[in-house]
C-alpha cells in the first residue's frame, strides 16, 4: 500500500481505473454492464472526438447523436474491474472501441467499493 501522506485523512488507497471508449450506439450496453458489475459509480463523456482504427470521429454533430463516441470512467477494486473487462472483451472482437485499465489512488475508499455483489437482472 502506497501511503504518500502523513495525515490519516489523506491516506491514499490503491484501486483500478477503467476507461472505455465505444460508439454512441453501444452506450446502453456498457452502461448496463457497469450497473451490473457492482461499481459504485461512473462518469460518462458523450460526444467525444478522436481517431481510431476506423478513422476520425467528429465529436459534436447537431443532427446525429449516433455517430459520435462515448467515453466511460469507473474506479473500483480489481475484481469488479476484472468483471467489466470480461464482459467487454467479447464486444471488442467485432465492434470498434478501446478500454484502458490503470492503477489509481483514492482518498475515500468506501465511496468506490460500491455494492458487495454484482447484479444481474433483466426482462
Amino acid at each position: 500500500m502506497s501511503d504518500t501522506s502523513h495525515s490519516p485523512e489523506h491516506t491514499l488507497h490503491p484501486l483500478k481505473k477503467i476507461e472505455i471508449i465505444v460508439k454512441g450506439k453501444r452506450e446502453r450496453f456498457v452502461q448496463e454492464l457497469l450497473d451490473r458489475s457492482g461499481v459504485s459509480g461512473y462518469t460518462i463523456h458523450r460526444n467525444v472526438a478522436g481517431r481510431g482504427a476506423s478513422g476520425f470521429h467528429e465529436g459534436h454533430l447537431l443532427f446525429n447523436d449516433e455517430a459520435s463516441l462515448v467515453m466511460f470512467f469507473a474506479v473500483s477494486d480489481q475484481s469488479k474491474i476484472q468483471a467489466i473487462i470480461n464482459g467487454l472483451s467479447p464486444l471488442f472482437e467485432s465492434s470498434s472501441g478501446v478500454m484502458f485499465v490503470s492503477d489509481t489512488q483514492v482518498v475515500r475508499l468506501k465511496k468506490f467499493l460500491g455494492a458487495e455483489g454484482p447484479q444481474h437482472g433483466g426482462a
Binding site: 451490473r36 458489475s37 468483471a83 470480461n86 467487454l88 465492434s95 447484479q119
Partner: peptide, 18 residues
C-alpha cells in the same frame, strides 16, 4: 455477474449487430 454470464451478454450484443 459470473464471467460466463457477462460473456454471454456480450455475445447477445454481438450477434444482434447483424
Amino acid at each position: 455477474m459470473p464471467t460466463d454470464l457477462s460473456v454471454l451478454r456480450a455475445r447477445v450484443e454481438n450477434a444482434a449487430k447483424v
